[in-house]
Nucleic acid binder design. Structure first.
Lengths: 219, 219
DNA sequence: CCTGATCGACCGTCCGTACGGTGACCACGC
DNA sequence: GCGTGGTCACCGTACGGACGGTCGATCAGG
């Protein structure tokens, strides 16, 4: 995770952690100020409003994820590799940038009507569009079974977005293993021919390596 | 959805709707009282605290879901049918009991540390235990591929729990169709032999019929 | 001396909850 | 038949705390 540089970044970092742990509504600026040994007024001075802070956290996060995925896709051609990359990336982000990941996932709908969140919504939409297009591409190429690309995309996003509820980065299973298991089942359901699946669903495989590189590069 | 009978039920119904639409924290008793043309004091008289109201909504909902699934499983033997039933049931509940479904899904973690929520947590755990055991059973019986039952259960729950964000009961696709699509992909990833899958993943098939009966019976 | 970060007191509002009271209804005993 | 006491749903108000945000003062560095 981007090590906080300067007071401002430090505040945002702490804010993200509080949101991740308690949720947006239960997060109050006073606590954050106390924890950082500063005044509430200082926080307001930097960000204006609480909503702005959430906006900034989510926007940074979505931008980073999108950028990373685009980077991976430049190095991965096959639809099954690209889909796997999205899954691996989502799991690894829990480790690389834990707080922003959880904050973003648990508050998806927070302030969604706020015009300030328009950019965030756009980024989310872009992510979904990319995924859906790749699924459709796989179907058209005769690699995937004929599935409903939209619903299947949302099904995938669901599994991944829900992870904040149960995934423990310090748990017995490594993120790579968890990711591999999810890739195995999801792609196992998509691929017409499962030959070669175990290669993609290998926690030590080439796809994971690419994903890890692109994620740490964006740091 | 259980038509509200008496003031008390009416209040709970409205509360569930508000939570579904705005979230627990943004729901305030004053608005509900106004909408129902009663005093805030009346609501307190019936339920004691706001937290109690959420508890009651979630507990009713989980109990109902659990009961329905158990009913289905008495009539469905094959692991693939039972897993499909869970998926169909989750989607259909969005129609049968829309507000409680959304409220329960979006507030999974709310008050999760509250001892009053212990029963709800127990019911959730029971649901998960049932599913995981059935997955394992399918693996042991040589019907499913060798997957990690725990992670795969959570993967399934994720897709389903996330639906409140995007699923529109009044949308172009019927709940049965959406459910069938999700069954198709998920079971497609589990089954060693996909022969017979289209029968289970048929929105007009026998499994759906059983699910629908058990859900409306519990009303 | 200007600029930007920081402080800390303060405000207004919102909201859950407590509490005292009212009227309808009903069972019961005289 | 009629008072009486109890129960129950409901009301209105007020309290008290929490919290986001404002504002003018202060401080440090260039």
């Amino acid at each position: 995770m981007p090590r906080p540089v300067g007071r401002r970044a430090e505040i945002l970092e702490t804010f993200a952690r509080h949101v991740a742990e308690r949720g947006y509504d239960q997060t109050n600026l006073g606590d954050i100020a106390d924890e950082l040994g500063m005044s509430k007024g200082t926080i307001v001075h930097h960000f204006g409003t609480k909503a702005q802070m959430l906006r900034e956290v989510e926007e940074n996060y979505m931008r980073r994820q999108l950028h990373a995925v685009q980077g991976m896709w430049e190095r991965l051609e096959k639809p099954q590799e690209r889909v796997a990359a999205i899954i691996y990336a989502s799991v690894l982000l829990h480790v690389v940038d834990r707080h922003a990941t959880v904050a973003t996932q648990r508050e998806v709908v927070q302030l969604s009507d706020d015009p300030a969140m328009q950019e965030v919504r756009k980024l989310r939409g872009e992510m979904q569009r990319l995924t859906e297009a790749e699924l459709q591409h796989g179907v058209d190429a005769g690699l995937f079974r004929k599935v409903d690309a939209r619903v299947t995309t949302l099904q995938l996003f669901g599994s991944v977005q829900w992870m904040w509820v149960w995934f423990d980065p310090k748990g017995a299973q490594s993120p790579e293993e968890v990711g591999a298991s999810m890739v195995d089942v999801f792609l196992g359901g998509l691929l017409l021919d499962r030959y070669g699946l175990q290669q993609v669903a290998d926690p030590k495989g080439a796809v994971v390596a690419v994903v890890r590189e692109c994620l740490t590069a964006a740091e």
